[in-house]
Design a protein around this nucleic acid. Structure first.
Lengths: 221, 221, 221, 221
DNA sequence: AATGAATGAGTGTTCATTCAT
DNA sequence: AATGAATGAACACTCATTCAT
């Protein structure tokens, strides 16, 4: 009620109908990420996204031509768009390939696995059948770059004589499976990991990395 | 129950009218399983379930008060216990623990991973948030027994001095993660495994088992 | 208010939720014809059509998969579907070709021009650009059969030596133009025919037929 | 007005800022005419009109309080009076009345039928119900003068003994119907004239004029 | 005067659910 | 017990209109 008074200066709060063009897309993407992860693609209503971002439905469509495009933008901002950076990091890594794999597991957890972006992976899994176009987008922009990144890491290890000769088509999954399992499990944790109190994601990551390297390395540590 | 069947001639073709009423719910559950697994909960229309079961939509609601109840019934019916059998199999296994782990990976694929049951796992993952009650049930009746089974296998290996000392709380996932990843990926294969033509589930299973054992065994094979 | 009383026998009035499957489509088509003609295709809301037919919006979509299909059905019922009858009538006509032309003008007025179906023609004219699929349908199912019918009539007159040699591609419009002009003008009569009180459609039809025949006949009557 | 132009350098390219304000409404009306004629009233979006006129949507609403008002202004601007000129032309025509009728058909096509103005006629037809006020205006300023012009021509023919005695109230349409039919058909040509490649508007005009005269003249040419 | 970001009412279509027969 | 006709809430997207700058 009191808040409805028109001439309240309301300190630093942004003007109701302000020119916010720069900020809007980001706010909408954040709101969308939250809701998509929480409720899934189909079950998330665009009104809700708009409301959470503090704008009207119409405004959302001002910035994103459709719900699907909104989703793609969310994926791009939170995952797809970060591969260049990750690729570069890998190219310029200076340690052994074992260290690189460990670094990979660790930073994946910090930057993706433990963040809300992790929910996007599970989301795709659930909705892929019903939204083939989105699935294709995700495959192209996320899954394939991810596979390529890991293949390059394994190849690096083989080239340097650190890893034994591998059938890359299947070996990628030695790295991917543990990460993806954790990603998929994360949002409904207790379903897949029935004793959350004796479970430490950090320790999971460490152990899986160690184990993978046992199999990978020419001479196990 | 089966003895209570009315005096139907029991000819090979089911009688048009007066079809065994007791069979209805079962037929509906079968149809629902197929469709839920194929398209997910939200995208499955009850008309379709009814149609596939050969009854009208109204009839479905005669047996299941709502779509959600139908879903619950499907899960309840299909995830019941194969565990006693598997537990026994493990207890009486006579080879080395390495062989047992390999046997495990292999039979899991044959009996679960490659069957429709695999779809149910992903389905649960997707819908766990919407059906906490079912999720809890699934956790208790499927996830926990599974964990316990694997823990026992690892414990057996440690007891016999075949496996090195393990933190079981995290080591279970060395076995589980590869299997679960494949299970979750299976229904929308090309999403997670972008080159299905160069991918062999059999080879995946073999490699993952081999790799896990590298880390597990005191002296790698 | 009083009508809202639940247990009024209300005499012959059909039951609110009766099994009306046979009657429904017809009622919907009638309602749709009225509204389409009155307000145009785009401006007619399907809720309104349903309401006028005394059913809910959902019911409409039970019988017609889309608004466009509803419209097509309206056109088919009121115009397109009647060409077989008209074609036959023409084939079996026994008088002179002059009489046939006069009969044509006259019956067109009675069966189309003076009825609500007349509004459909103008409707198509207005909406053709925005709904190309509908326009194509109308062209195929109404315009072309109409042209063919008239061409056959003119050809008959030429074959019998009653009409002079004609360039059919343009002569069709000697017959069509007066009829179509009246059809298009009808719904907003006073716009095109500024003195409706001194205007008789019957006389218009008679005069136009007479005039056309003057030009058509080898030896004017 | 034109003399009041500010001291713009009058270079061939219009100055970016400070463009002549007076021109705005005119540019908007021109853009609106094009679009209304092309797409109809409802299907024309005001953004588009504004864009085509090179201004923002907000500016449009500065000059025209609503889309409807814009429409009214378009009609008012474009259907004003060419009739004085045409009336004069008719009064001073020196040939036979047959020739006058032929001249009429021909020049109508050149000056109206084949121009954008033709689209306005159809537009009025479509929107007359929604804009009764405009319809009345159109009737008064366009339709009635047109009728009067044709009546005078027919009267001239009768007075000179060239045309037979006519019931003018209906005979006007002998001339009007063919022209109006072509006018209405023009914008969505293929709808009314299903074989545009075998159709020549010139030949249509010629044939219709010839045919009308057959009926009109005391002794057909 | 001019902008363009923001709004929100409006619409075709879907589908779980009801209920008269 | 079984049907299937009927319902109506829900939802993505559009676009004329407003208004702070």
């Amino acid at each position: 009620m009191a808040a409805a008074l028109p001439p309240v200066p309301e300190s630093s709060e942004p003007p109701r109908r302000g020119r916010r063009k720069e900020a809007r897309p980001g706010e909408l993407l954040d709101a969308a990420l939250d809701l998509f992860v929480e409720k899934g693609f189909a079950a998330t209503r665009v009104d809700e996204v708009a409301a959470r971002a503090g704008v009207s439905k119409g405004t959302l469509f001002l910035y994103f031509p459709s719900k699907e495009d909104l989703f793609k933008a969310v994926v791009r901002k939170n995952i797809a768009g970060r591969f260049p950076e990750w690729d570069l990091e890998m190219e310029t890594f200076e340690g052994t390939s074992s260290e690189l794999v460990q670094y990979c597991f660790q930073t994946w957890w910090e930057r993706v696995g433990s963040t809300k972006a992790s929910g996007l992976g599970k989301l795709m899994l659930s909705e892929a059948n019903n939204f083939p176009e989105i699935a294709e987008f995700y495959r192209r922009e996320v899954v394939e770059p991810g596979h390529r990144l890991i293949r390059r890491i394994l190849q690096r290890g083989m080239d340097r004589g650190e890893f034994r000769t591998l059938d890359l088509d299947h070996a990628v999954y030695l790295v991917l499976a543990p990460l993806m399992f954790l990603m998929f499990s994360q949002p409904s944790l207790s379903l897949c990991i029935p004793n959350p109190d004796t479970f430490s994601a950090q320790e999971y990551i460490r152990l899986q990395a160690e184990n993978v390297l046992q199999g990978l390395c020419v001479r196990p540590t």
